[in-house]
């Protein structure tokens, strides 16, 4: 933990540190022996009390902490559960900030519509992508498994600025992935559509007209940053 002063920069550093360790609030005993010490929620309260702008708390405290843990995950220094714990701690801070943002101003990296293609019932790859992207600041619209192309198109119509992710885990549902991309392209020719899943390859992604291929869930974050950079 940063040497505690009430200077805003130290408070922001403590928020970032607590996000990394997953300490959402004072009641949590993560890390072990830290029960009673302030966590993300309490440090965010302090930052608000010091009139630190909510955008600054979000960017330099919450997101800064999560970005560190994201980089550690990409470098195989931490596991997924540690990323999820950090994301949960970040949400504890976000909940404090929400009332300070008008609904339309709540900053977000963008909206991401994610589904497993028609005929495929596999959840876990899709869920992983959703979790990691949510942690990276994306608003997630999870349309589930066995998604018919019409369902995907309807979700995109509802969220026209979204990027889209498609997952397929069987050789026999890769064909459905191609059909889904075609259906999306018919209505939204320029839509960012990324694809992944065990049998999917870069070549296949190009062949079906997807915008990009992510070999694993964390690669989806970088891929989206390249294809649809933050405004």
């Amino acid at each position: 933990m940063t040497e505690t002063t009430d200077a805003p920069k130290d408070i922001l550093a403590n928020i970032a540190q607590c996000v990394q360790t997953g300490k959402a609030d004072a009641n949590m005993n993560i890390p072990m022996g830290s029960k009673g010490q302030p966590g993300v929620a309490e440090w965010v309260d302090q930052a608000i009390a010091k009139d630190v702008p909510p955008q600054t708390i979000l960017a330099e405290g919450l997101m800064a902490g999560l970005q560190v843990i994201g980089k550690k995950f990409a470098a195989n220094e931490v596991f997924i559960p540690e990323v999820l714990i950090a994301a949960r701690a970040m949400h504890a801070g976000m909940n404090k900030l929400k009332p300070l943002f008008a609904e339309q101003d709540m900053p977000s990296r963008g909206t991401f519509v994610m589904g497993t293609v028609q005929g495929d019932l596999h959840d876990i790859g899709k869920n992983l992508v959703c979790m990691l992207l949510e942690g990276a600041g994306w608003r997630i619209i999870d349309v589930g498994v066995d998604c018919a192309p019409e369902k995907l198109v309807a979700a995109i119509k509802e969220h026209p600025d979204c990027a889209v992710g498609l997952s397929a885990l069987l050789t026999t549902t890769m064909v459905a992935m191609g059909k889904a991309v075609s259906a999306i392209r018919e209505s939204f020719p320029d839509k960012t559509v990324i694809v992944g899943g065990a049998p999917v390859t870069e070549e296949f992604a190009k062949e079906i007209g997807a915008s990009g291929y992510a070999p694993d869930p964390s690669a989806a974050i970088d891929l989206l940053d390249r294809l649809q950079p933050a405004a």
């Binding site: 069987l170 050789t171 026999t172």
Partner: peptide
């Protein structure tokens, strides 16, 4: 064994 990429 399983099928190559094809619909069923």
């Amino acid at each position: 064994f399983t099928l190559p990429p094809m619909e069923v």
